[in-house]
Nucleic acid binder design. Structure first.
Length: 293
DNA sequence: TTAGGGTTACAG
DNA sequence: CTGTAACCCTAA
């Protein structure tokens, strides 16, 4: 594996994959014209995209014989070999993954006309909920969920997202969890690593993990990612940022789910990671754009 | 503009 | 030296 000149970053790869999944392989110019993709691939030309895609396909094709073992958490190559319209969703055996959504390119008919406005970041929603609830001992997850559900149009998987986000916020030190009650952590500026005191070691890293809440594991599917990307098209920076934030939350939730399940989630893991990579990169890029134009 | 072939640069 | 990945050139 060479690491020669300007090696492609994981973010760029994820963006390329997302673009190909959306527009199809070969529409390099189209992908590059998309604002959200061009942000990430600003330093790449259409030829670069083509070459990279070729390399990735060749790499994936060469390993046809040996059974693919584990996908190392970096630069996962996926088996998207379909052209454009087919969009083969990985058919997993036990847990059905859903949709073979046609997604006939909604150029003329934006289906998101009925979308629920721009969704703020779940992080901020949680903080807002806790703040407004003003419960001295902190708010429980259920209370937060109810607050969000009443004030906003929440997705069905809110529970999952909320659990994952709460966990993350707690781990990052932005929230303090005491007896199932979440409080807003004291301002530690940034670098969540609280230096000295506050031994939250007994945070209960793995308390009762192996308990899948619902047998139904709904992991992000390619089509869902596509749907998000489709929505991101033609959005303003703020809206796109919000969408990207949600994508991050969903990806993280998917990863957490995959890790907890730890079963045969190879595919899901790869997809979730890919989604996370792209979402993170999108957010980063958008942030940079708003700041440094 | 894209697909394909060729060249360069680096890792093993 | 060989394989791979980014880069480069050119025909369609």
């Amino acid at each position: 594996m060479g690491a020669p000149k300007q090696k492609w970053t994981s973010e760029e790869e994820a963006a390329l994959k997302a673009g190909v999944t959306k527009y199809g392989a070969g529409k390099w110019s189209t992908i590059l014209k998309d604002p959200e993709f061009s942000i990430l691939l600003y330093s790449r030309s259409n030829v670069d995209l083509k070459d990279k895609w070729r390399n990735m396909n060749v790499a994936a094709n060469g390993w046809g014989s040996r059974s693919r073992v584990r996908v190392t958490p970096k630069s996962n190559q996926q088996i998207v070999k379909d052209d454009d319209k087919a969009l083969i969703t990985v058919s997993q055996s036990d847990t059905e993954i859903v949709d073979a959504q046609p997604l006939a390119v909604s150029n003329g008919t934006p289906e998101n006309a009925s979308s629920k406005k721009s969704i703020p970041r779940l992080d901020n929603l949680i903080l807002e909920a806790i703040t407004n609830l003003k419960e001295p001992r902190g708010s429980s997850r259920a209370a937060i969920a109810i607050y969000i559900e009443e004030r906003y149009l929440a997705p069905e998987n809110l529970e999952k997202l909320l659990a994952a986000t709460l966990k993350l916020l707690t781990e990052n030190g932005k929230l303090i969890k005491v007896k199932h009650q979440f409080r807003i952590a004291p301002p530690s500026t940034h670098t969540d690593v609280n230096k000295g005191s506050s031994p939250l070691i007994l945070e209960g890293k793995q308390k009762n993990s192996p308990k899948v809440e619902k047998n139904e594991i709904k992991i992000l599917s390619k089509s869902q990612i596509d749907a998000e990307l489709e929505k991101m098209k033609g959005m303003t920076a703020q809206e796109a940022a919000a969408a990207a934030a949600q994508a991050v939350a969903e990806a993280e939730a998917a990863i957490a789910e995959a890790e907890e399940a730890a079963r045969e989630a190879e595919k899901a893991e790869a997809e979730a990671e890919e989604a996370q990579l792209f979402a993170e990169a999108a957010m980063k890029a958008l942030k940079c754009r708003t700041v440094c134009t």
